[in-house]
């Protein structure tokens, strides 16, 4: 092995290993797999809903639910609907008033969005974000009731 290769080898091995591990395991690159593994989704997904917006959902309209006040702040959701069918749901407002809420909700909101888009009003919810989950469900229930 030439001196160059010998000295390059440790860094090359480490670098490739790093890229492979992140490429194979990082949830951001595998939102679908993260979903399949027990309802957990990547933050900032919305991809689950996007995948379902076929055919009829392409002509869906957007409905915004009421603002629901929770102990930590307001929650409001918006849904795209086609007739009585929910195509996708996403939160447009959630508690950010304090650092802890914003940390919890930065995990919770994307999961709630994905769950609600998949499962409708009876979505599982996120433990550790009970208040946000309840507010989310109420706002979404109001949308469903109005259809």
């Amino acid at each position: 092995m030439s001196p160059l290769l010998r000295r390059l080898a440790p860094a090359a091995v480490l670098g490739s290993l790093a890229v492979i591990v992140v490429g194979l395991l990082d949830p951001a690159l595998h939102p679908s797999r993260a979903l399949a593994n027990g309802g957990q989704v990547a933050v900032g997904s919305g991809t689950a809903a996007a995948a379902r917006s076929t055919g009829s959902c392409a002509t869906a309209k957007t409905v915004t639910g009421p603002v629901v006040d929770t102990q930590y702040g307001p929650v409001q959701v918006q849904a795209t609907v086609n007739g009585r069918q929910l195509c996708a749901v996403k939160a447009v407002q959630w508690p950010l008033s304090d650092g802890r809420s914003s940390m919890i909700n930065s995990y919770a909101i994307p999961q709630l969005d994905a769950q609600a888009s998949q499962q409708g009003v009876n979505f599982d919810g996120v433990s550790g974000a009970t208040y946000t989950t309840d507010g989310y469900r109420q706002s979404l229930q109001a949308i469903v009731d109005s259809l």
Binding site: A18, V21, V22, D26, P27, A28, Q40
Partner: peptide, 19 residues
């Protein structure tokens, strides 16, 4: 590190920093 977006990247980046 396995369920949050880009956290595996952060964990691996941290390991590289330590090395």
């Amino acid at each position: 590190s396995t369920q949050q977006a880009w956290m595996m990247g952060a964990a691996v980046g941290t390991a590289l920093f330590v090395i």
